[in-house]
Write a protein that binds this DNA or RNA. Structure first.
Lengths: 326, 326
DNA sequence: TTGAAAGCGCTAACAC
DNA sequence: GTGTTAGCGCTTTCAA
């Protein structure tokens, strides 16, 4: 692969001059510019960004740590992140942390070793103290990482409220929550609080069941079936849309009518759900806004590592009413 | 961020020695090793992989160019790629090319500039001649890029055959194909050929409609509705599962019974479809195997850039029978 | 078993 | 308007 020196030789100038041409820096005669450009063309030259970064320049690389990209929610979020980063001239190293805390730690080291300019983290693993001493700009999605890492999230409390209101106004008297793992310190817990608070105002109570994020759809379906068979539930709030899809399936299999026997509200409202399951009532997280916010903050921190940011940035959610509530 | 020299000073040895410890190279006394390790610990040191790569080492970075990751098929594929690459110590720069050829070209330059060790490309853009002169190991998924870029794909012809057989044995006499854009040189065209060949053997003909990959689900739905309303179709083969989902929706809205009035076969068979739409009969592409193959070939090429590889690697597909055929 | 020195490809003073 | 030089953080001969 051609180097700057090769170009310099071919164009008959010094390396410095070539560097100036590339970076459009200082004063240059048209003649040399042309010579250099054509030499670059001829050798299909690409400046080595490794060398450039070694000299203290930014790498223009952002590490993105997410649970995984096969889930439509995170798929859409990662795609949005990529899109916006690209427009600002950044590339992204994608790190799927799954539920593997060790992998997440390993990735953290790798990202440091690769001198990324910053990190966006939205995985679900707990207790990764390494975040405390990364010494790199980090922004988190919907999870507490460390005192100086700002959290961007949508309004989980409001989401819970909306879900409850939707179930209640559809006539549910015995609502049920199905949630992923309920972790300490997780902002998503507010979904439950919001839900509960509205119910209490209406003198209603609710049941709660936890189906871990990571357990297989088959197992979830089984538990859901059990739930639908044994209990006198007339409304369900799932804290993610995919689980809501399973509920819908199981209800149909059991000949329970939605929304007359059972009202159903999901959570996330991805494009995928809106396009392919518009029947589902759900709470839409504003993914684009969340990403815009995260990138905005991250770039601020990259520009000025000492800039003060809030601890929390909360964006409003929206109820999307489909046919699974009235 | 701490450098190798910092460690050297703190440990009271030379930089060379530290380098040796890090790379576990040459002979070292236990005492120095311990000293160096504890110095590294103390300063939370991460070797700068930029500097390392500048010295001719591999970057351990792979560029992955895909249409986008919000589509469950590519989401799953990218997740699988990431997973397998991680296990082999590689990181991935994710490039969503969408349907934007210019973006794909820009990414190609970026990847070269970042000295990635290799590229996996599976996007849909056409006529990107830049692939000819990247001068980097490349493996392609399901698309022709250049004479020396091996193509890994699943057996599209066989997939078409299976789809046709499934429709026919379910009793379809007037089958319809709904396909994404039909491009020259695309291996996916074989799906149509395989389908057609089987039909001809049974003295049946078929209709074909193109719904571009990139058009919105709403527009697709509209066209599908038109199709279902006007024509005497009794079986549909969609060359992707999401479109099949739309067909199912529209058929239900029109009160057409599946599979009695209309038989339906999709394509791809992602985990998502298997988990959340197991009712759909579909052709499953072996994503894991495809990825394993691609990475295997890519690493071979990285190890030995001159190694000879086949032009095509074709992996078998599988019919998954759900309730949309009999 | 360890160190000194050169150099990877680039940028940025500092000269001229 | 252009070139010389030093150096980013690391690896790797070559010596000791």
């Amino acid at each position: 692969m051609a180097t700057l020196d090769d170009i310099a030789k071919l164009a008959g100038v010094s390396a410095t001059t070539v560097s100036r041409v590339i970076n459009n820096y200082g004063s240059l005669s048209e003649k040399t510019k042309t010579k250099v450009f054509s030499a670059m063309q001829e050798l299909n030259y690409q400046p080595n960004s490794l060398a450039r970064s070694l000299k203290g320049k930014k790498t223009k690389l952002i590490g993105v740590i997410m649970p995984g990209v096969s889930n439509p929610f995170f798929g859409q979020m990662v795609q949005e992140i990529e899109d916006q980063l690209f427009k600002k001239g950044f590339k992204m190293i994608l790190c799927n942390a799954g539920n593997d805390a060790q992998k997440e730690k390993d990735y953290l080291r790798m990202l440091m070793a690769n001198r990324v300019d910053g990190i966006i983290a939205g995985s679900h693993n707990l207790g990764i103290e390494e975040y405390q001493k990364v010494g790199l700009p980090i922004i988190s999605f919907d999870r507490y990482l460390s005192d100086n890492v700002p959290i961007v999230s949508s309004d989980n409390y409001q989401g819970g409220e909306l879900a409850a209101q939707s179930l209640i106004s559809s006539g549910s008297k015995n609502p049920q929550i199905i949630t992923g793992s309920n972790r300490p310190n997780s902002p998503t817990n507010s979904r439950l609080t919001g839900f509960k608070d509205v119910l209490e105002k209406h003198d209603l109570s609710y049941n709660l069941i936890e189906l871990p994020f990571s357990s297989s759809p088959n197992i979830k379906s089984l538990k859901i079936k059990e739930l639908l068979t044994n209990k006198k539930i007339d409304g369900i709030f799932c804290t993610d849309d995919l689980t809501a899809l399973l509920v819908k399936q199981q209800a149909q299999a059991l000949n329970l009518q939605i929304p007359t026997d059972i009202r159903l509200v999901g959570y996330d409202g991805t494009n995928f759900i809106q396009n392919y399951h518009s029947e589902l009532t759900t709470i839409m997280q504003p993914i684009t806004d969340i990403v815009t916010m995260m990138i905005d903050l991250l770039l601020k921190r990259i520009d000025d590592p000492d800039c003060q940011l809030e601890k929390n940035y909360v964006l409003p959610v929206k109820l999307i009413t489909g046919g699974t509530t009235i």
